[in-house]
């Protein structure tokens, strides 16, 4: 056995500069959350994501996850030994099978998701004890868009993620009805991220 064969099975590297790159990813996430539906760039971040995660979703894991944040994975990610060993090695976050236990949920194939139900929405006293759902995206410049209104948005913001399941907008509107309880959603395209916090009202445009 040689070093190079050993390294072939080792988890892929994390950030080149963990301190400053985690900060840069966080600022993109903070801006995304503060300005729902706007696209925040991660172009300056260099990463080799473990398949089938994309770069932005991997950056979110490295930036926010650790032993305090149980992670729920969709089938495709849960079946990837590469993803499991990457999460174990870089942030030591527990993987959970139970949606309501998850601080973060990572979904690589949003179209195949059966429902958004079951994730933690917090309690009246602690609405922050909720799941942040991360949906991997091919692009955030899809032809079909919705309009967003609410905190962080001066008038109205159009938003066009490429990969959402058919029930998604209806369930997101229901999620907003529970406010201040609810899930928050992050959209992770390769080089861009966007956010849809529970405070945002979604208006579906007539086709």
């Amino acid at each position: 056995m040689t070093v190079s064969t050993l390294l072939k099975t080792a988890p892929k590297a994390g950030f080149e500069n963990p301190v400053l790159e985690a900060q840069a990813v966080f600022r993109a996430l903070m801006n995304a959350q503060a300005k729902p539906g706007t696209l925040q760039s991660l172009a300056d971040i260099k990463l080799s994501p473990p398949a089938p995660l994309n770069k932005a979703a991997t950056a979110i894991i490295l930036c926010l996850c650790d032993y305090d944040t149980p992670i729920w994975l969709d089938d495709k990610l849960a079946n990837s030994p590469e993803v499991a060993s990457y999460i174990r090695f870089h942030c030591n976050a527990p993987i959970t099978q139970h949606r309501h236990e998850a601080a973060f949920a990572f979904i690589s194939e949003p179209e195949k998701l059966a429902t958004l139900e079951g994730f933690a929405i917090g309690t009246g006293e602690y609405p922050d004890r909720s799941t942040t759902v991360v949906l991997c995206q091919k692009s955030l410049n899809h032809a079909q868009s919705v309009q967003l209104q609410g905190p962080g948005i001066q008038t109205s913001q159009s938003f066009a993620p490429s990969c959402v399941p058919a029930f998604f907008w209806r369930q997101i509107q229901e999620n907003h009805q529970f406010y201040p309880l609810g899930i928050d959603v992050l959209f992770a395209a390769d080089e861009q991220i966007a956010a849809l916090p529970r405070s945002t009202k979604v208006i579906i445009e007539e086709q």
Partner: peptide
Amino acid sequence: RMIRRAILKGIAI
């Protein structure tokens, strides 16, 4: 990381 997660929740609520 812990403070950053709290900031994101605070912004959402």
